[in-house]
């Protein structure tokens, strides 16, 4: 086929936009060793579909010139190009790549701010801190979500207050949920009020996240609140609370966990059996022995494992 006998460089320069686009798609799998210099000019292609493919093909090539060329394309007139740019920028890994992105963290459209915030998150650069703190007040919930994400990754002590505030008051439940997860970098006791308050959030997803984060942080002081969460209307929240109580080796939670061993939801009985094994207190033996007759084989198995863990711990 004559078109395939053309060199990739010739195809990239074809007057036919479709041929140029195909050449860009083929380039990463061609014999060309160094594809970046061939792709950069195509970012300026007059055809948006060619630009989109060129952006996608540059994913994972984190040279300074690539990032500098891609960042301004967050303002490309074509929506598909902008989406591709956002995705590729969100794959960046090196903190050195952040500089060209900083100007897009504020101003511009909500979409641009959101994509730029998402792109700097994993780079964990100090320069993103102030813009992210500002963006917590953004009118757009999507922007606030990404801002919270940036602060969670940055893990700076001075953001805890602001994140706690967002977790308590943001009108968007997904923003609140992410904020609760984001607090999970600080095991300071000061985060405790925010997390325990979140255990009573109106959204069960927020409560679920809070129950999980308390376990991740091993915040023993939260054991009473987690025990209350074992009465949550949503069994999903109870499962997370049981998981955290197990991780915390919360002997005080024995009664509520043993009670959960008889709950109608199998997943909760399973989690309770695991937690009782982790706590390894012999007082749980009768309840676990009863669970050996559970209708759910998984519960029976995990109860047997928990009983073994208890007997090993007593040695």
């Amino acid at each position: 086929m004559e078109l395939q006998t053309l060199s990739i460089a010739d195809r990239l320069a074809s007057p036919d936009a479709e041929v140029r686009r195909l050449a860009v798609i083929d380039l990463p799998y061609s014999d060309e060793d160094d594809i970046v210099p061939l792709l950069l000019p195509r970012l300026q292609d007059s055809d948006a579909t060619v630009r989109t493919e060129a952006v996608r093909a540059l994913e994972g090539y984190e040279d300074a010139e690539v990032v500098e060329a891609l960042a301004p394309m967050l303002l490309d007139p074509d929506a598909e190009v902008r989406t591709a740019v956002g995705l590729v920028l969100s794959e960046l890994k090196e903190s050195a790549s952040a500089a060209p992105l900083i100007p897009f963290l504020s101003g511009h459209s909500a979409e641009v701010r959101m994509l730029a915030l998402r792109a700097v998150r994993a780079l964990r650069v100090d320069a993103a801190f102030a813009p992210a703190m500002d963006a917590l007040k953004d009118a757009d919930a999507g922007v606030r979500r990404e801002a919270v994400g940036v602060l969670g990754y940055l893990r700076r002590a001075e953001a805890i207050g602001a994140l706690a505030e967002i977790a308590a008051r943001d009108p968007d439940h997904e923003v609140r949920r992410i904020a609760i997860g984001a607090i999970g970098y600080s095991s300071e006791v000061s985060v405790l009020p925010a997390l325990t308050r979140a255990l009573s959030d109106v959204s069960w997803m927020v409560r679920d996240e809070a129950a999980q984060t308390l376990g991740k942080l091993r915040l023993g002081l939260a054991i009473p609140e987690l025990m209350r969460a074992m009465q949550d209307d949503y069994w999903q929240v109870r499962v997370k609370a049981a998981r955290s109580l197990g991780l915390l080796k919360a002997t005080a939670a024995l009664p509520s966990l043993m009670e959960a061993l008889a709950h109608p939801i199998g997943n909760l009985r399973k989690e309770a059996a695991i937690a009782l094994g982790e706590i390894a207190d012999p007082r749980a033996i009768p309840a676990l022995e009863k669970a050996l007759d559970d209708a759910d084989p998984d519960v029976r198995k995990l109860s047997r494992l928990a009983l073994t863990a208890i007997s090993l711990a007593q040695k």
């Binding site: 998150r121 964990r124 969670g152 893990r155 991740k216 695991i274 998984d298 198995k301």
Partner: peptide
């Protein structure tokens, strides 16, 4: 992860490991 494979992470960037019935 450095190569660009996306693993599930929590909101602070730690891997979100799940426990599925093993020890």
């Amino acid at each position: 992860d450095r190569w660009g494979v996306k693993f599930e992470k929590d909101e602070t960037g730690d891997y979100a490991v799940r426990k599925v019935h093993h020890l």
